[in-house]
Design a protein around this nucleic acid. Sequence first.
DNA 1: CGATGTCGTTACGCTAGCGTATCGTTGCAC
DNA 2: GTGCAACGATACGCTAGCGTAACGACATCG
Lengths: 116, 116
Amino acid sequence: MPVELTASQALGLWHAVSLEQVRHDGRDLSLRQLAILLEVYLVPPPHTVRGLAERLGVTKPVITRALDTMGEQGLVDRSRDERDRRNVLVKRTVDGALYLEKLGDLIIGRGRALTS
Amino acid sequence: MPVELTASQALGLWHAVSLEQVRHDGRDLSLRQLAILLEVYLVPPPHTVRGLAERLGVTKPVITRALDTMGEQGLVDRSRDERDRRNVLVKRTVDGALYLEKLGDLIIGRGRALTS
DNA sequence: CGATGTCGTTACGCTAGCGTATCGTTGCAC
DNA sequence: GTGCAACGATACGCTAGCGTAACGACATCG
């Protein structure tokens, strides 16, 4: 089942998902935060602050701040790398996995609704 | 060509697009701002502050502030409704259309790349 | 050892955005 | 006209996030 989108369908999908997310997500994650979250959960570990900063093309304090916020919300976890104690490893959480699972369901649902 | 996504593909698409957007968009629109922009461009006019607020489930000052910012960036325009001068009509701009066109292309491109 | 470099974090001043409450303007019904 | 409702914008105090520059902790290499 190929992912073939017209320009109109692509924007329509983004529209529907964004709208639903704004309406029903109290968290209101920024695009940067969401990108970090997806990176951590979809790309094999390890994930470091430095690595994430390079990947997103932002500075390190941006990552630290985002991890502060998302850590308080239980979406990610941080722990020292015992092999090199300068590093901090960003780890997944149950709540984070649940959050992205719901987002995935939302995208699929809205994508299906586009063709009906 | 149906829009059929697996859960993994859906999140992968969101991941790729978010990443690209964070890396190459100096604007860094919030999810709310993007939702407003898509609403204005994909739903037939007229668009009022009140209407957008109800549609997104947020308060009116949220919309006013978002329109301030996006107005400065040339993504949307505001003008008084001459038929009922209490209303403000949110209008599209060339720059805004261009911005969403590029976003659409990005989504399509990343969607296609998912299946290759 | 000490010197140097690399981590992630923090400090600083600043801007943007938030919610609540209120404001001035405009429409409308009486 | 006068009262009242609806519209969008503004004021207020506050939080979150920003970029730049520094910091302490740790590793590495001579």
